[in-house]
Design a protein around this nucleic acid. Structure first.
Lengths: 142, 142
DNA sequence: AATCTACATTATAATAATTCTAAACTATTG
DNA sequence: CAATAGTTTAGAATTATTATAATGTAGATT
């Protein structure tokens, strides 16, 4: 994972001005070992914990959407009430734990390549995503 | 597709009281050739068009959720902003047209059965769903 | 058939997530 | 270093959904 100041370059490359807020958000999102999933709410908490200066909620929304548009983040649709985002922007599938509301990445080896036989005229396939919903395996659940 | 009065029976079978509102909603949802997809908003419009009496928004929400819980409806997650529901409650996959926001069912023959190799300890798989996002195939789009 | 009770419906208020607004600010260009 | 175009901000507005509490109704009990 890259060092802080590289983010300035990266932002510029995709045409986003490297503002103080965007750089801070990059640090929070990308200065880590592994990719991860978050909601806007999670992210706001993470930022306010890591920072002394505060950042406006509107900016978090703006920036997340700017990052998404530029391919820095991917939105995952699971739940109609919340937006989940993923710092892993490569094509991959997910498990969703319905007990904990935790989102887990699938490795490529977990699911075979999916072959779509249907064709919709004039339309091209943008993405193929599998969502595997799991829940606790108690026999005695209703 | 069944005639109106059967809905009273059906509702009773799953333990839902056959109220005037629920029967009306059954008619709107299930008295038709094909299954279909809708948002709560769509449904409210459809009901108000087909009825002379009005129905409360809260009742539409309550009833849709009651139907979902009893397996009369299935929720489809595509978009974080809206809840889509499907009167086709069997396990099946979807295409989502990102231009029109239209949801299209996949037939069983469109996608092979998906084999999940990963196992999450103590968890069972509740569902495996594929979402294929499509959009218009213009070369000259940005 | 009158009464009871638990469940349903309703209008409205409340909440939550997100977007809008318009003024102040700042990175970049010339 | 001034101009300008993009950015941030607080707060208001919007949208989707859920909660509330009073009223209504289905089905059971008498």
């Amino acid at each position: 994972m890259p060092k802080n100041c590289n983010f300035i370059e990266k932002l510029r490359e995709v045409g986003l001005r490297p503002t103080k807020q965007r750089i801070k958000m990059c640090e929070v999102l990308y200065n880590r070992e592994k990719t991860f999933h978050f909601t806007i709410n999670d992210l706001v908490k993470m930022i306010s914990e890591k920072m002394n200066e505060k950042i406006s909620l509107a900016t978090v929304y703006n920036t997340v959407h700017a990052f998404e548009k530029k391919g820095y983040l991917k939105e995952i649709s699971i739940d109609s009430h919340k937006s989940y985002f993923d710092t892993n922007t490569s094509a991959h599938h997910h498990f969703f734990d319905e007990d904990t509301h935790e989102l887990i990445d699938c490795d490529e080896s977990d699911i075979d390549k999916i072959n779509i036989r249907k064709n919709i005229t004039g339309k091209k396939i943008n993405s193929v995503e599998v969502l595997v919903r799991v829940a606790s395996d108690n026999q005695n659940q209703k």
